[in-house]
Nucleic acid binder design. Structure first.
Lengths: 212, 212, 212, 212
DNA sequence: TATGAATGAGGTTTCATTCAT
DNA sequence: AATGAATGAAACCTCATTCAT
C-alpha cells in the first residue's frame, strides 16, 4: 500500500511520460491501425489513466503524429551519421548498410512504422508526405550515392540510380512490413539471415558490371 | 410499373447487388482501412441504403471477408490457367508473368488487396491465413516452377527457388502497395513501364547463370 | 409487447421529431441552462434515445440554436398580425397588448426563452444578436408606435418613445424571468392578475398627460 | 528569502486569497454560468493553481455559494446604514436611493449577481432562497418604508406598497441584467444617465398623488 | 426486396477532485 | 500553503445493427 514501488506511481514524471505514451501507442497503432486502437488501451499499456494522455497530447490524432515524428527523427540523424563513417568498395558498403538497417530498423519497434505509414497514408496525407520527404527521400539520396560510387569505380554496371533505388530497396521494405503483419499470424517465411544473404547476392549480381 | 422489362432489369439488379457492394467496399476498405470505413459510405457508394447491406451480408466483418474472397478467387483460377498456357524459355516466361500480373492486378481495383491484407492481418488473422494459403502459396508455387525450369535448363544459376521467391516478388508487391497509399498523397515515383523494365533487367541479371 | 402503443414507438415520425425534441430541450435548457443540461435527459424527455437526437441536429449547440429559432419565429408572425388588428385609444391598446403578451408568452413554455437568452448571451453571442434583432427590435417598434399614437392624440404626455420603451417593458420581462427562476424555488410574489393591474395603473399614470 | 518583509507580504497574500478567488469566480460565473466555468480558469485568473482552490473551498459548489454570500453581505450592511442616514421628502429619498444603488451595484462586479441568481436559481434553490430572503426581502422592506412615508405625507397616491415594489424596481434589475448579458454582445441601449432620469420621471409620475 | 428511423454500446474527450511532493 | 500530475466519472458523439414498414 505504501511500499516504495507504489509511491513511484506518484512520482512526477512529466519528462518521461510523452515517450512512454508514444512507445505504447506505436505498438498498438502498428498492431491494430489508427482507427481500431482505443485510447484506453494505449493509456493502460503506458500504465496511466485515459485522462493522462490528454495532459501531453491534444487528442488521438496528435498522439499519432507524435508517434511518427518522435520515432523517426532520432533514427534519421543517427543513420546518416553512421553512413558517413562507412568506407570501402560500393558492394561492401551496400552490404554494410543493409545489415545495419535491419539491425536498427528491422529489429526494433519502429520497424512497424512503414506498415503504419502505408496503411494510414490516405487518412493522414500530411504525415505521409512528411515521411516521404524526411525518411524516404533521405534514404534514397544515401543509396543513390552508394550506387553512383559503384558505377564510377566500375564495380557496378552503368545504370540510372534514381530508377533502381526503389526496386532495390523493396525486398527490405516488404520484409519489415511482413514481419509486422503476416508473421504475427503465423505465416512465416525464410529466416532473416538467409533472406538477407540471398537478397544481397541477388541484388549485387543484378547491379554488378558484366565481366566481359 | 410492372412491365416485364422493368422486372427483368430489377432481377438483374438483385443478382448484381452483392458484387456491387463488395466492389464499393473494396475501394473504401483499401482507402481508409476496415475500422475507419463506415457502412453508410459503402451503402451510399453502392447506391443502396444501409439496411440493404444486411440482406446480403451478416455484418461488416462478413462483408470484409467476402470482399477478399470474392475478389481473389476468380483471379486465381484465371491466373493459373493463363500461366499453364504459356511457353518458352524461363526468362521470357518470367517476363510475361510479370507483365501480365501488373495488367491484371496492378491496374485493377483488386490491386488494393495486398495493402489491405498487410494492414489488417493482425486484426483478421484467419483472413490473413486464407490469403497466405490461397494466394501467396499458389503464386509462389507458380514462380518456383518457373525458376526450377530455368535452373534445369541452365538458363538460371543454381539456387534454391523457395529462398528467392519472396525477394524476387517484393518489388512488384511494394509497387502495388505504394500505388494505393503514397501515390494517392502525391508522393510519386518512376513511371510504371520504366519501373517494370528496370525491375526485369535487374532481376534477370541476378538470376542468370554466370557466363563463365 | 406487441400492443398497438408499443408499435407506435416504431412509427416513423420524421416530421414530428424535431419539434418534440426542441420542446423537450426548451424545458430543460430553461430549467438548468445550456451547459448543465445533458443530452440524454433531453432525449429521454422526448421519448427517444440519445442517438436519435443526432439524426435531426448536428450536436447540442445546433439543438440549442434550433430551440430559440423555432420557438420564436411562429410567435413573432402571430404577434405582429394580432397587433395590426387592434384598435382604440393608445391606453386601451397598450393594456390589450400587455394582457395578450402575458397570455401568449407568460403562460407558455416559450416564456422561458428570455431567461435563457440573458443567461447564455455571452456564451452564444450570435444567438443573442439574433434575438435582439428579431424579437426585441420588432417588439420595440410595436410599442413605440403605440406610444407615438398616444402622444399625437394628446392622450400621453410628450416624451421620446425610444427612451422609455425598455423601461416600460421591464416589469413584464422581470416577471417572466422570475416565473422561470425564483418562482420555481418557492420564492413567490404578488399574483399575476394583481401584478398586471397594478403595473398598468402605475405605467399609464406615468405616461399620461398632465391634467392641467 | 525569509526576511520579515517577504513573510509579511506573503501573510497578507494568504489572507487575501479567498477574496481574490471569489472575485475571479464572480466574473467568470457571471460571464459563463456556473456549469460552463472551469475551475482552471478561476484559478488562473486568481493567479494560483487549481489545487489551491481546494485549500479554501471544499469544491466548486462551495466556491459558488461563497461568491454569492461574500459579495452580498458587506453590501447589504452598508446599504441599510446608508439609507438610514438619508432624509427628506419620499420622492427625493427614492431618487437618492436609486442613484446610489446604481453607483454601488450597477457599476461594480457584484452587479452581475442578479443575472447569476436568476440563471442558476433552479440549480441552486438554497442559494436562491438565501438571496430572496437576505437581499430581495431587505431591499423590499426598505423601499416599502419609503413608499409608506410618501403615502402618509400625501406626496404619493394611496396604494399598497407591497404590491408595487417589484414592479417599481424591475427597470433597475433589468438594466443590470442587460448590462451583463446583451450589452456584452454589442446589443446596446439608452445611456445609463438618461435611462435613470427617464425611469425616475416615469415612476414618480406613476406614484404621485393626483393633483386634484 | 428494400428502406431508413431508431437504437445503444462503445468510443473520444473534458474536468472536478485528489494527493505526493 | 502551494503545486500540478494524475485520476476517473461522466459528458458528448459515432456508427454497426435492428426492425417496422
Amino acid at each position: 500500500m505504501a511500499c516504495p514501488i507504489e509511491k513511484f506511481r506518484w512520482r512526477r514524471r512529466k519528462e518521461a511520460r510523452p515517450a512512454e505514451l508514444t512507445a505504447a501507442a506505436l505498438d498498438l497503432f502498428v498492431e491494430k491501425g489508427f482507427a481500431a486502437t482505443r485510447l484506453d488501451e494505449i493509456a493502460a499499456r503506458a500504465g496511466v489513466s485515459k485522462g493522462t494522455v490528454y495532459l501531453y497530447f491534444s487528442g488521438k490524432e496528435d498522439l499519432f503524429k507524435a508517434v511518427i515524428r518522435e520515432s523517426l527523427l532520432p533514427l534519421l540523424a543517427e543513420g546518416e551519421k553512421l553512413v558517413a563513417s562507412m568506407h570501402g568498395p560500393a558492394g561492401d558498403l551496400f552490404k554494410a548498410i543493409v545489415m545495419r538497417w535491419w539491425e536498427m530498423v528491422g529489429e526494433n519497434p519502429i520497424g512497424g512504422i512503414p506498415k503504419l505509414i502505408f496503411a494510414e497514408a490516405r487518412n493522414f496525407p500530411e504525415i505521409a508526405r512528411f515521411y516521404a520527404e524526411e525518411v524516404i527521400e533521405r534514404g534514397k539520396r544515401l543509396l543513390v550515392a552508394v550506387f553512383r560510387r559503384g558505377i564510377d569505380s566500375g564495380e557496378f554496371r552503368p545504370f540510372d540510380p534514381e530508377l533502381l533505388v526503389h526496386i532495390v530497396f523493396s525486398p527490405l521494405m516488404m520484409r519489415v512490413i511482413w514481419k509486422h503483419s503476416l508473421d504475427c499470424c503465423g505465416v512465416t517465411t525464410v529466416p532473416i539471415d538467409i533472406y538477407l544473404r540471398e537478397y544481397l547476392e541477388l541484388t549485387l549480381r543484378g547491379l554488378r558490371r558484366d565481366p566481359a
